[in-house]
């Protein structure tokens, strides 16, 4: 196995993805460059562990532009130092954030929660477009949350897009029983106090084990 690279010796010049407006916010894998030799860059896939980058693919800096032109990576205008246990993520205005993992997780969780609340309010107002957009933001920020899928399924049901509703049900299936998901969708289609109580009870629902 090749020697790992120390994160302290690296800077970040971009990330290994190209995002569009339906993909943000999103955690992204950094593209690194050696501080001491800016002609050498490191690409994922790699493993980050205890301040080191393992098994990265080293490419000459000149190849980064080729990868950018092939829509494989995004390059920043400048570079900034890499840090141990930090996460790189891109917000919905395409601004990058590089912060400790726990802070990034908190921030993305907050964005997801606020987007769900916004989507619920938009649904109540009958602003389907905004509800669709915000539920998308929520699921990008945290794809473990089930509410955005239920909101999207509810919108599909309102539009009589049965294939779309079925797909959302499929996506939720590994984490939530069909019955519970249907109740969430019904709630978003026409909430009542009883259903509100049910939703509060389901807030801590745990993922189901995937079928073998």
């Amino acid at each position: 196995m090749a020697d790992p690279w120390k994160l302290d010796d690296l800077e970040i010049v971009g990330y290994a993805n190209v995002l569009t407006e339906t993909m943000v916010p999103s955690v992204v894998p950094p593209v690194f460059r050696l501080k001491a030799d800016r002609g050498r860059a490191l690409l994922p896939p790699y493993h980050l562990n205890r301040g080191f980058v393992w098994n990265a693919t080293e490419v000459p800096d000149s190849e980064l532009e080729e990868l950018r032109d092939s829509d494989e990576i995004t390059l920043f205008d400048g570079a900034f130092p890499a840090s141990s246990d930090f996460e790189l993520w891109i917000d919905d205005a395409f601004q990058y954030h590089y912060q400790p993992e726990y802070e990034a997780e908190e921030e993305l969780g907050r964005i997801a929660t606020e987007a769900i609340q916004g989507a619920e309010e938009a649904l109540r107002r009958g602003d389907i477009e905004q509800a669709e957009h915000l539920s998308g933001v929520a699921i990008c920020a945290d794809d473990r949350k089930m509410e955005p899928l239920a909101i999207k399924a509810a919108i599909c049901r309102m539009k009589e897009d049965w294939a779309g509703e079925r797909l959302m049900r499929e996506l939720a299936a590994p984490r939530l029983t069909e019955g519970l998901f249907q109740q969430m969708v019904s709630y978003y289609c026409g909430p009542s106090r009883q259903q509100s109580a049910l939703m509060r009870g389901m807030a801590g629902v745990r993922p189901l084990e995937r079928a073998a």
Binding site: S26, G136, A163, L167, L171
Partner: peptide
Amino acid sequence: APLARTARDPEIRRFFGWCAG
């Protein structure tokens, strides 16, 4: 495709719907 992309991107949704059909 990643779940978040599938749920959010209308083109991927339509394509997955076609696959299901």
